[in-house]
Design a protein around this nucleic acid. Structure first.
Lengths: 334, 334
DNA sequence: TTGTAAGCGTTATCAC
DNA sequence: GTGATAACGCTTACAA
């Protein structure tokens, strides 16, 4: 059996109170310090976090609740949040709702029952019920990636409009007039923003997008594939396309291969978020990159601040800028 | 403040003992059952897991300790382990050691201090110190992906030799005689197995691999890239190559693009584990696929069994077979 | 079947 | 600075 603070106290000839105080950084006499240190070493004492948690009504764990683990975005978030919060004493519980709003709500309740000290939420459900549940239980919360408008909450997002605008604008600069876009569900904050940026850039250039060239996928490889086929199946084909999410970019690429199109001769392509893929495909892909590491780290830090009770700047929405990479997948056109 | 079992007992006019028993599935009179149910509903009672944990010396959490979150293999493991263990009441803590053996050991101790009830370990350090530490603390452990020979432990792995053998054998069948391989660190269980399979197949066909055609990368994209360049920089170039890990496959592809080689005309390629990528590149990549989902689920189940105290079949090594996908990236040769 | 009370390992409060 | 003791919310003998 592991030794407890009592054992340490007994071995050191002190009271548990004193030992506890020392462990928690309160001042003690030098002689007692060394006695305790000795005892700890000899007994190989490690404080019991559960007891600590019970006493302090804390679990020293936070959760990241996310839609699906298959996106680089999500795993990158886990990584940076863990790196930020573990050194602060919080372990990170990962919860995946498998793109299912009902499961998301159930797992939210589960996490509350587990008494997590804070939650980073990459929302899937759009009605905000998860958020209400978390807030009703007074658990610190940071939204990531998606803003759910009607709910007041800390929030870390990408400047999606800018990403959509920049990509489209660049294509327009290169002379493209018929530009297609593959977006996600319009109700999603990210998709809406990226689409809005696209539309703004088009409007600014007095271009009117063909209705069928605005296709909605479901964020999956298949969704992107199908959307690309639909786009190519229109009377007036686009000369360029902006794909507003990672997996759909892969899918669209597949479709482009299937259709035997050459990039950028037949179509110029700008994708999204395409870490390793971007350079492997030939020609290299142009894309809008999210500063995922910064976003995750920021989320971890903000959550920690809230856990510590600092709500001085609540609620806060932090918007990160995308970085654009223009490679050989886009070309000038007359 | 959340209500406790005491509140429920008071509201229902019963003792805490009775309520506790009911909650834990012991039999009670129908009338008390409904009284408790009522109280629970009215008071919105949720048992405090921390208190429960303190009492039972359990945390109801398990950890997955892994080298790096950037591989599909690892994230896929998290996903299937979470799916398996959450319904059984265990939350999954993710811990990343960033390919750093010392950090791995530190985080192991951290998890022990956090009193996790079990650990799934995808080992990075090869000396087995993490394993000793975990076992010394009597924490159920399942090794995943890598076997560390000198340590007795439950273990779930791929049949790496078979993967190496099958890939190489197929290339030989197609007439290739000069086959190269990019492996990882020879000290790693996975790399050693895949290399052995390669060598076995060569030997069986009375082929002697060129020394410089056996190149060791560090599992990274860069490593694969450099290894491929080294291989192509030899006097006698291979006509086919087997790349024994996901990231290095991407890197080798990059290098092949850089060298302006055509697949499969200039070189036939079989990669590893290449879920989405395999179909995006042109031509589609042949590869050996691990049954990651099964492996993760198996790890979760086995860990749970150990947590429940069932050591009847300990220690167990479960070896999964790879599935081979042969696509247009390999060709017949004279 | 139900109630009582001790105890899990900490920390906090209050004396000394 | 240190020690004694009462919590934190739950489970579990044991008693009724």
């Amino acid at each position: 059996m592991a030794s407890t603070i009592r054992d340490v106290a007994a071995y050191a000839g002190l009271s548990v109170g004193t030992v506890s105080k020392y462990i928690n950084g309160k001042p003690v006499k030098e002689s007692t310090r060394s006695a305790i240190e000795d005892a700890i070493k000899v007994l190989d004492f490690h404080p019991n976090n559960i007891a600590k948690g019970l006493r302090n009504a804390k679990s020293f764990s936070v959760a990241i609740l996310l839609p699906m683990l298959d996106s680089t975005f999500c795993t990158s978030m886990i990584s940076s949040i863990e790196s930020t919060l573990l050194p602060l004493g919080y372990s990170v519980i990962v919860c995946e709702c498998h793109n299912d709003a009902e499961m998301e709500l159930r797992k939210t309740q589960y996490l509350i029952d587990r008494m997590v000290d804070g939650i980073v939420l990459i929302p899937y459900g759009l009605d905000g019920k998860q958020i209400e549940l978390i807030q009703k239980n007074n658990i610190p919360l940071v939204l990531l990636d998606q803003e759910i408008k009607k709910h007041k909450a800390d929030c870390i997002v990408l400047d999606n409009e800018l990403a959509g605008y920049e990509s489209t604008h660049r294509l327009i600069e290169l002379g493209h007039k018929d530009i297609a876009i593959i977006t996600g569900n319009f109700e999603h904050y990210t998709s809406r923003g990226r689409l809005k940026g696209f539309l703004d850039a088009m409007k600014e250039a007095d271009l009117i997008p063909v209705d069928e060239h605005i296709q909605c996928g479901d964020y999956s490889i298949d969704g992107g594939y199908e959307a690309m086929l639909r786009i190519w199946d229109t009377k007036k084909r686009p000369t360029a396309i902006f794909i507003s999410n990672y997996d759909m970019t892969i899918g669209a690429y597949l479709a482009i291969n299937y259709l035997n199109l050459k990039i950028p001769d037949d179509i110029s392509v700008i994708g999204f978020d395409n870490f390793p893929l971007a350079n492997v495909v030939n020609p290299p892909l142009s894309f809008a990159e999210q500063p995922t590491n910064e976003m995750g780290t920021e989320a971890g830090k903000l959550l920690y601040k809230r856990i510590c009770g600092d709500y001085s700047d609540y609620p806060q929405t932090i918007m990160h800028k995308p970085t654009m990479y223009y490679k050989e997948s886009i070309r000038k056109i007359n």
